[in-house]
Design a protein around this nucleic acid. Structure first.
Lengths: 133, 133
DNA sequence: AGCCAAGATGACGTTAACGTCAACGTAACG
DNA sequence: CGTTACGTTGACGTTAACGTCATCTTGGCT
């Protein structure tokens, strides 16, 4: 491990994002790459955070929401009150995600049902209609 | 069942959306309320579609993606080719949702882990620090 | 007839999350 | 020493999904 840091383009390749996105996340204080001169170097911590950022996005959280959640994953120090607040926030997100999972299960079941119906229909159509133009 | 249709404000109350949103969905051809004069009347079909629309949004699908999926739920007629295409699309969405569920499970597990850690930390902090200002 | 509430129709504004230049810096290479 | 590759900082553009007016209309009271 020469330095355990990645340049911006390495970071982009590793996560499939654009440089613009990374700079944007930094401007919104979701990432804190260190600087060597003026160039950004992304640490292991940045990589962990980016992973969580992308995951959060997939679950429909805004960058601002994600930023607050990230604090939970990166505090070995913070204040008592702040920690308590962050935990409250985390509880909300957890509830949100569990509700989401329940609805997702339901949606998956319904979609499968519709697809079964569609495939049956497709089968009957291609049987009765295989003589048509 | 007087008519089995809802006015726009009834619809809004029932689903917690604004009139603007409903008109917007109609303009994007996700809903097709019938007209009595110039007023919109939302049918049972519109209600079913709106439910799916809101669900789709929660899972991060765009309105355009949702519009295409809605076809699957409302075709008793369509063409063979179209049906086949729609099923392909549905398969993609299904795969997407199942991947989403897997990642959601992982995310929930990780968040719980972090919260446990945070709560332990909180407990130890409030024990050692209960004498501080 | 007068009026109000509910609804319709544009048309422009807004926010989030980047995309897309343009202009500049700089380190290494031939 | 020129130029190519990679990077930086503004600054303005864009898309999705509505919000927010500013006018009309219309069916019902009174």
């Amino acid at each position: 491990m020469p330095d355990d840091t990645l340049t911006i383009s390495e970071m982009c390749a590793a996560f499939g994002v654009t440089p613009r996105a990374l700079r944007f996340y930094e401007s919104k204080e979701l990432l804190f790459p260190i600087r060597q001169g003026q160039k950004r170097l992304f640490t292991k911590r940045d990589r962990a955070r980016l992973k969580l950022i992308l995951r959060g996005k997939r679950f429909g959280f805004s960058l601002e929401e994600i930023r607050q959640l990230l604090d939970l994953y990166h505090m070995g120090d913070s204040q008592l009150t702040q920690l308590s607040r962050t935990l409250d926030l985390a509880r909300l997100h957890l509830a949100d995600m569990e509700a989401q999972r329940a609805e997702l299960d339901e949606a998956i079941a319904e979609l499968k049902e519709q697809m079964d119906w569609g495939e049956k229909k497709l089968a009957s159509l291609s049987k009765s209609g295989h003589a048509a133009a």
